[in-house]
Design a protein around this nucleic acid. Structure first.
Lengths: 110, 110
DNA sequence: TTGACATATTCCCATATCGGAATGTATATT
DNA sequence: AATATACATTCCGATATGGGAATATGTCAA
């Protein structure tokens, strides 16, 4: 019996993996303000169309964007709600960097 | 002349890539409260020692943990400051999920 | 010095990329 | 119907994993 190896997790396994790619973050930033067709993303970010479509596919699979068809165009928009888990995870460290900061401040004041 | 391909970015390329791995997030959570030797992480998280060392190596390379030697032990601790960029990126979407939420609320109230 | 203990690194391998090029699919226009 | 437009998917190749096993490195103890 063969047991599957566990290499790096799929980019579609969760929002953390999906957002690790900088171009996908750029797309999410771009689509946060309002929905846009694929062509606009291609033009604005200067990426190849197939590349953008593939990134959008990953973002869709983890729920980071929503889509709707408009004629022959596909309008994408960021689903901010799906970014919340990341925000919450990072927030749990907020008090620590506050502490570290105040310690640095104290030292500087002495 | 050969131009290097650009596959998935290295886990050590930045904090976003480093925290994409769930075991590394678990390690960061564990080391947030206080510094700990590698053996404690192994025992607490139930991972193999070489695996933990390798994850710590990645976290060190992107500055997410700091280390100091204590005899034959290595004491690691989370450097919360390095998590801030992720927090700030996710925070830029906060107002959007607030909006989405209020829209959902409005609809529910009607 | 010789061991024991704690941690790090290396080697191997199956897997999941990411970009580029080519091709496929759906909708609109004439 | 035929063509054009807008996207999506597939195939390819180079690369970076992540776990497991084995081994190396470094420090303390007798």
């Amino acid at each position: 019996m063969y047991i599957a190896a566990m290499p790096r997790a799929a980019t579609t396994s969760d929002a953390f993996n999906a957002v690790a790619e900088p171009r996908r973050r750029a797309i999410l930033n771009y689509l946060a303000l309002q929905e846009r067709p694929v062509g606009d993303i291609v033009a604005s970010l200067g990426l190849e169309q197939p590349s953008v479509s593939k990134h959008l596919r990953v973002l869709r699979d983890v729920g980071l964007v929503h889509v709707r068809r408009d004629g022959r165009r596909m309008l994408y928009r960021t689903n901010a709600e799906a970014i919340r888990p990341l925000h919450e995870w990072t927030s749990s460290f907020e008090r620590f960097w506050r502490h570290q900061l105040s310690r640095v401040k104290e030292r500087a004041e002495r």
